[in-house]
Write a protein that binds this DNA or RNA. Structure first.
Length: 548
RNA sequence: UGGGGUGUCGCCAAGCGGUAAGGCAACGGACUCUGACUCCGUCAUUCGUUGGUUCAAAUCCAGCUACCCCAGCCA
């Protein structure tokens, strides 16, 4: 059998198993799953998990189910399952089936009865507080529940009564009979079913008992025939329990294997669901798709190409070491993709008038749509000699090596002409009101003739007559706020209260008629120290363009 | 103080007993009608630490140390 080249330790494990013939019985057909709980919108952390799972699907021709781990009716809703499905679609990930843990409720119930019959589970009358108290601590063993030795018949009767709705929430639980003295606290008779008279978004009021994750997840995996159950590091301690539930349920080999990897952290980006939900609920942001959100919807809204996110995930790799990836690495992937694919437009965010005093009339100039594409596609832009340039592109006191415009200096108006600044009009406050220039006809963009006149810099401009004015919606950056951010978590992400986080410092967004996004790339900063090249905040979705 | 994990360049991360890949960042320089892009060059005698095994160790063994996870009827 020819094995694909493993690109991470998980695939390495898979290759070893394949080589050992572990899956021959099932024709070496593998199966994985992406199992979010539909209780929030997926964020960039989910994308990493998707890339890992869909990566196995693509590399090994495995089957992949998108499974909603919906075992806690209190938090889940269709709004979230839709957001999860949308995220997969947008990222171009095709799953084989959309399944729900709640599809398995009947089967899960049957297996729970089997545990009882086999003497592996019992109904416990202890209250939540009592269970906590008897569970022991990290260093002390727990004590067995007084209900631990009930007969199979009694357990079965009680469990059926639980299901029938005879008891109040919290009155009883079904517990796995494992080992109250286990050093692994997860093995100290964990709860399998709890009573909750809560309506479920899919099963309605059919059930008043709901399975716990620790039981439902491994068994769902086994039911589906999952071979590799990939999850994040915090479930490592649950693995023995995962195996216990699968084995005691009586499934046949090859049994699903849980493999854990480190979840994604990015500097200056807070991704905890609790935090994001709070931002949405308290209307700090416009919604889950606010462009400042690290959600898939937010990223999409911001103009981030899905391919850039996949590239990012491929670049950062998969490992078990706790890590915080620098946001610069994400930005780099986005920039690369945008630079390659985005159509260009010129825009000025902070306009100042520039008049070419020796220019009369108007003409059409050719503007390259994307200098990275070899097709030479252009669009026409009009020039009348009166334009706006960005205030940052002119200086009254030019520092050394300044490459843009200043009095007496020259600069090229991109795609147009080289101009020389002759004079500047100031207003009462001493601010620049108008820049007066002379242009050099022979320097017209595209002309082959070498000109005497040279310009070191190039600036963007917008024609005063034909340029479109767009109202930018400028978002306030989200700042670290004790009220919204988990302090410890924030500290680990190197959050600096002085700086904005969640990826955007100054997002400018504008709506257009055709909804087609344009990428605005500002020219670099003079000061290399602050940013050599643009940062993410300078590449924004411009849903309209100037001089279009 | 119990158990489970992890420690390789500023940040990710390969490496799996034969003498430290790659990406991001940074720094030089070339080029440029976006100070971008592109290009070329620099960037770990050293792999948490101390010992041991070996002709040979980041890789094997032992001790130490740091950090992360676990005591929800959440996932």
């Amino acid at each position: 059998m020819k094995l694909p080249e493993a690109s991470n330790f998980i695939e390495q494990i898979i290759n070893e198993e394949l080589a050992a013939g572990k899956f021959e019985k099932r024709g070496n057909k593998l199966q994985v799953r992406f199992p979010p709980e539909p209780n929030g919108y997926p964020h960039i952390g989910h994308i990493k998990a998707m890339c890992i799972n869909f990566g196995v699907k693509e590399k090994y021709g495995a089957k992949l189910n998108l499974r909603m781990d919906d075992t806690n009716p209190a938090k889940e809703d269709y709004e979230y399952v839709n957001s999860l499905v949308d995220a997969c679609k947008w990222l171009g990930f095709e799953f084989d089936q959309l399944v729900f843990a709640s599809d398995y409720y009947d089967k899960l119930y049957e297996i729970a009865e089997k545990y009882i019959i086999d003497g592996n589970a019992y109904v416990c009358d202890l209250s939540a507080e009592e269970i906590t108290a008897t569970r022991g601590t990290l260093t002390e063993a727990g004590t067995p529940s007084p209900y631990r030795e009930r007969s199979v018949e009694e357990n079965l009767r009680l469990f059926r009564e639980m299901k029938a709705g005879k008891y109040l929430d919290g009155a009883k639980t079904l517990r796995a009979k494992i080992d109250m003295t286990s050093p692994n606290i997860n093995m100290r008779d964990p709860i399998i079913y709890r009573i909750a008279h809560v309506s479920h978004y899919r099963t309605g009021d059919k059930w008043c008992i709901y399975p716990m994750y620790d039981f439902a997840h491994p068994v769902s995996d086994a039911i589906e025939g999952i071979t590799h159950s990939l999850c994040s590091l915090e479930f490592e301690n649950h693995r023995p329990l995962y195996n216990w539930f699968v084995e005691k349920a009586g499934f046949e080999a090859p049994l699903p294997r849980q493999i854990e990897f480190a979840r994604l952290n990015i500097t200056n980006m807070l991704m905890s669901k609790r935090y994001l939900k709070k931002l949405v609920d308290e209307k700090i942001v416009s919604g889950w798709d606010d462009p400042r959100m690290p959600t898939v919807a937010g990223l999409k809204n911001r103009g981030v190409p899905p391919e850039a996110l996949k590239k990012f995930c491929a670049d950062i790799g998969v490992a078990k070491a706790y890590s915080v990836v620098s946001q610069a690495q994400l930005d780099s992937c986005i920039r690369d993709n945008l630079n390659e694919n985005a159509e260009r437009a010129m825009a000025v965010l902070n306009p100042v008038k520039l008049t070419v005093t020796n220019y009369v009339g108007e003409e059409e100039l050719s503007f390259e749509k994307n200098p990275m594409k070899a097709d030479g596609a252009t669009r026409d832009i009009k020039f009348t000699g009166t334009v706006y340039i960005d205030r940052d592109d002119f200086s009254l006191n030019p520092p050394p090596k300044y490459k843009r415009l200043y009095k007496g200096g020259t600069v090229r108006l991109k795609s147009a002409y080289i101009v020389r600044c002759d004079d500047v009009k100031l207003n009462n406050e001493g601010e620049v009101e108008e820049i007066l220039c002379t242009y050099f006809p022979e320097t017209k963009s595209g002309s082959d003739k070498p000109s005497e006149v040279k310009a070191k810099g190039v600036v963007q401009w917008v024609d005063a007559k034909y340029g479109k004015q767009v109202v930018f919606k400028q978002y306030q950056p989200l700042l670290k706020d004790e009220e919204y951010a988990d302090q410890d978590y924030a500290e680990r992400l190197n959050l600096d209260s002085e700086k904005s986080f969640n990826g955007i410092a100054e997002p400018y967004l504008a709506e257009s008629e055709d909804g087609k996004p344009f990428q605005l790339m500002r020219t670099g900063y003079y000061k290399k120290s602050s940013a050599n090249g643009f940062t993410l905040s300078e590449i924004v979705s411009l849903k309209d363009s100037f001089n279009k």
